[in-house]
């Protein structure tokens, strides 16, 4: 069963909040992982590992570098699971 974009956002917000210590409410589509959420590359790879597990998708390393905002990640995951 595919997750809607809203569900992906909610799930991703939970993962990012756990990893970054930021409140889940700060994990909005426009937020930049590096500039707004203070996510370094080690944390980003941790988030990707958890997201792949949670949404049952595969996010290759070459695509991770294009995911600069939360919105980018949400649309990527929503499409990838289709």
């Amino acid at each position: 069963m595919a997750y809607t974009e809203e569900e992906v956002l909610a799930g991703l917000a939970e993962i990012v909040a756990e990893e970054s210590g930021q409140p889940a409410s700060a994990v909005v589509p426009s937020a930049s992982f590096t500039d707004d959420l203070d996510i370094d590359s080690l944390s980003m790879m941790t988030i990707i590992t958890h997201a792949e597990d949670k949404f049952d998708v595969r996010i290759p390393d070459e695509d991770v570098k294009n995911l600069s905002t939360v919105g980018d990640a949400v649309s990527y995951i929503a499409k990838a699971q289709a």
Binding site: L42, M45, T46, T49, E52, D53, R58
Partner: peptide, 9 residues
Amino acid sequence: RGARRMLPT
């Protein structure tokens, strides 16, 4: 669970 589930930390 396989290598893809290993955490980078």
